[in-house]
Design a protein around this nucleic acid. Structure first.
Lengths: 152, 152
DNA sequence: ATGACTGCAAACCATTTGCATTGAT
DNA sequence: ATCAATGCAAATGGTTTGCAGTCAT
């Protein structure tokens, strides 16, 4: 539960930024804070809204630029679930990779882990001569609630 | 090898179109022909190029509209592999669903089938209360050729 | 002081759409 | 003849970028 300094995303960002001759601005700090304290799967527009609740001057462009920066330093990862919006979630480590279930009725997004599938993916890739660096797997359908509602 | 009339995409399109009060135009026929005689995974721009080699008057908008129509009648399926372009491939039947391996170096796209993974996907979904209607799985990495080149 | 960052507005770019004309039925 | 489809150009919408002023170092 206790977060060590070297695991704190804010510290990672600070280090990355300084090592690259970049600057740790008020906006970057705010956007990163909002992002890491959110539930994930947020669109840039959503982040902007939350950010502007605190500082109404922040621009959309800056949120885009900051999320790109967070992606570069390995703290965020973008996902596109097909609704034309890029959604960001805190980056995962290799050991805790997860995939997504997306409810096409209510938009709910559920994360899941499955080691067996991961292994099979690597096996299939190897059979085809590929070395996999990353993958995406999304299962679209109806969640329990929406499936129930459609039944009479 | 012999394609029956009811399996011929052109016939399926003709039927769909007439049942819906739509028209089987010269452009639709041409675009469908080009599409079904191509290797798949083509962008709309690519299709337009091939189509214009035969009829230079065809517009981009018509190719977009036709690919949407082919998708509606179940003959084509769109994929987005993350380069900002929608790619179309001939629709698959339920029994022959496949997924993709994408080489991030040369762009090569390889299709594969894996029943085991499909089963696991449904199991995982069920465990989370989901009924899956469709899914996407893409494995990104380096194909044999590109992987070899990077080695010294 | 330097040069990276920001906010703004304009640009991008794949895709969609309005409209007058054309063409399949 | 009817009304859907086409070609064109303009619009859309998420995202990016140029630029002049601002701010972290």
């Amino acid at each position: 539960m206790n977060r060590l300094a070297e695991d704190d995303p804010r510290e990672i960002l600070k280090t990355y930024v300084s090592r690259h001759g970049l600057k740790f601005t008020r906006q970057r700090e705010l956007i990163a804070d909002v992002f890491f304290n959110s539930q994930g799967h947020l669109r840039v527009e959503d982040l902007l809204e939350s950010v502007r609740a605190i500082d109404p001057q922040v621009s959309l462009a800056t949120v885009y630029r900051t999320m790109k920066l967070l992606t570069e330093c390995g703290l965020a990862s973008p996902h596109r679930f097909g609704d034309g919006h890029t959604r960001y979630e805190p980056a995962e480590t290799k050991e805790e990779h997860h995939d997504h279930l997306i409810c096409t009725a209510c938009g709910r997004i559920v994360e899941f882990l499955n080691e067996e599938i991961e292994e099979l993916q690597h096996r299939v890739a190897a059979e085809n001569g590929f070395v996999v660096t990353n993958h995406r797997m999304e299962l679209y359908g109806l969640c329990k609630r929406c499936h129930g509602q459609l039944d009479q």
